[in-house]
Amino acid sequence: MIPSPAAIRAATEWLSARARWHPLEMLFWLAAFAAIFVLPDQHLILTEIAWLGLFALSLDLILGYAGIISLGHAAFLGLGAYTAALLAKFHIVDEPVLALLCGGFVAMAVGFVTSFLVLRGSDLTRLMVTLGVALILAEIANRNGWLTGGADGLQGVDIKPVLGLFPFDLAGHTGYTYCLIVLFILFLLARRLVNSPFGLSLLSVKSNPLRALAIGISVDTRLVIIYTISAFYAGVAGALVAQTTAFASLDLFSFDRSADLLLVLIIGGAGYLYGGLIGAIIFKFMQDYLSALTPQYWPFWIGLVLVVLVLVGRERITSWTTPIRRLAARLDWRTTAHLTAPSTEEPGH
C-alpha cells in the first residue's frame, strides 16, 4: 500500500519538527560557551562536567535510545583514557586532538567486538556481561604494570598543546574550552543520529524488538552499530579525562564509575540527549557543594535526592523530567499540538 501524500507530508513534518532546535537548547549551549568567559574560576569543575556529560551522553545513546542497560560502561572510558595517555607518554601521537580520536577508535573497536556479547540475552545478562568486560580490562591493566603503571597509575604523561597552539594551563581554561568544543561537536552528531530514520528505528527496537523484527528492521545490526558508536563516545570522554589530568589510573575502569554514570543519567533523565549533560551538571555541583560542606556525609544527601527522584517519577525513573519537557514543548512557538503528539516520550509501553 502506498501512503497518501498527506500522510507522507505529515510524517516529514513530524520528522523535521523533531530535529528542529528548541530555544531552550540554544540557551543551554549559549550558557555553556558563555561560561568560558564569565566563570573563569569554575573551569576545573566545568571541565569535569563536560567530560562526564559526554560519558553520560554515550550511555544515553544505548540506554535511552536502544534500551541496552550497562554496568560496565567505564570499560570504554578507561580504554580511551589509557590509549590517549600512552600515546602522549611515548610520544607516538603528541597532538591531543589526534590522540583523542585514537582513544575513541580503540574503545570503538573493543565496543564492536563486545557488542556481540551484549546481543545475547536480556537485561540481566547484559548487566553481567558489561560488568565482566570492565572487570577484565581493569585486571589486564593491573597485570601489565610495565605498560600501564599498574595500581600506581600511569605517570609521566606530558600533554602537548592542543593543535600545537593552546597549552593546558593550571586554571583549566584550555581544558574546559577544549572539552566543551569536543562535547558540542559530538553532541551535534548524536543529535543528528537520533533524529535520523536510523535513530527512529532504534526507538522501535527499544520499545518492542519482536515487532521491530517483524516489520523488517534488523535488530541485531542496529544494536551493534549503536553500541559501537556509544563506545566511541565513551572512549573520547576517557581520552579527555586523561588529557586534562595528564594521568590515567585503574579506577577509570571501576564499577563505581559505571554506577555513578547510571546515577548521573537517572538524575538527568534518559532518552533525550540532554539528560546526561544536565545530570552531570547537577551531580557534580551537588557533589562539590555538599562535599565541601560536609566532607563525611555528602553521599547521604545525594542518596536522598535520588530517592526523591525515584518517588517523583515512580512509573519510569528515567523520565521524571517529562513534565518539564512537555511544558518546554508547549512554550515553543513553532511546535504545534499535533506535532508533539507522537513524541519520543512515549515510545510505547
Binding site: 576545573l44 569543575i45 593550571l170 583549566g172 594521568f247
Partner: peptide
C-alpha cells in the same frame, strides 16, 4: 573529600591552588 579517586584529587588540588 577525595574519595580516593585520582582525577578527582587532581581537580580538588588544582582548585585549591588556583
Amino acid at each position: 573529600d577525595s574519595g580516593s579517586v585520582p582525577d578527582h584529587t587532581k581537580r580538588l588540588a588544582q582548585e585549591l591552588i588556583v
